[in-house]
Amino acid sequence: MILGVVPVLGIGMAFGAVSLPLGFTMRTVLEALTGAAPSGGDRMADIILQIRLPRTLAAFVVGSGLSMTGVAMQALVRNPLADPYVLGISGGASAGASLFYMGLIPGFLAGRLDMSLAAFLGALLVISLVYMIARSDGRLSVSRLLLAGVALAAFMSAVSAFVTFASEDANKTRAVLFWLMGSFSGITWSDLPVASTVTLLGGGILLGFSRSLDALLSGEDQARSLGVSVEQMKKTLIVVSALVTGVLVSIAGAIGFVGLIIPHSVRGLVGIRHHWVVPGSFFLGGTFMVLADTLSQILLPGQQLPVGIVTALCGVPFFLVLLRRTDYQFK
């Protein structure tokens, strides 16, 4: 999987809305890496260095982060249907983005926000509510977590749908709808530092918890008997997943299916040990997302196809085939 990353990043760089010679693309990237001035035209160099490179890297980071948080959520609620959005994070982010776009955030706050920050705050608000509802006597109830997450996600989706429907500005409605489907269009270098730092830190923490995650899949009591501090771990998993998902959704929108299917695909390939599932999901998720984003640019030349459509259209059949062909186990 690790070996496959470099060629896939190369594919992400080589293909896009316009056709550029592969040699020129690679030379421009190498020149940029070595600090030399690009020898090609300014416009083509801009396309490679200011659009494709940050976009490809962002796709990798978002795919990796969502897949890993999918692993964390599935272990936390011990349910194979869980994904990064199961606790209502995407619903909160969507509501935050919708309210911001439609100008429904109070003026004193709106001036200090942009759409990404509004989405992140929406996600944070929902996960905080879910956490408070699920917490009782210092313990977190997984059933309450799930139910509160699903209920608040539905509530926030209704908020997004209402503000979008009620808006008289068709341009903003279109922008929100496009954002909800997920896209890497408009990604700039400034989006990458926070997203990649949070994803790498989150990945490191999850990897550190890999043995505890294995134990948690057997049940909370079993994990406790093996010396795992279950309550502490559940809180950490929620905070890490909320932070990673909130940041990633805020830059790329609510891209679906990746966080659900990649962890299962990785389990089908490397087994259920989280020591392998976490890094496997990091690399396969990133690789898959780069390929999906590349396809989204090639399928309709010159146009933007929301990447969420491609992840579902291509990812789900791939996942079903894998599920059928392998000796799959969740626990």
Binding site: G16, A17, V18, R43, M44, D46, I47, I51, R52, S185, G186, Q297, P301, G302, Q303, Q304
Partner: peptide, 8 residues
């Protein structure tokens, strides 16, 4: 429209 298409 894709940004790079417009740029090109």
């Amino acid at each position: 429209l894709d940004d790079e298409w417009v740029l090109m």
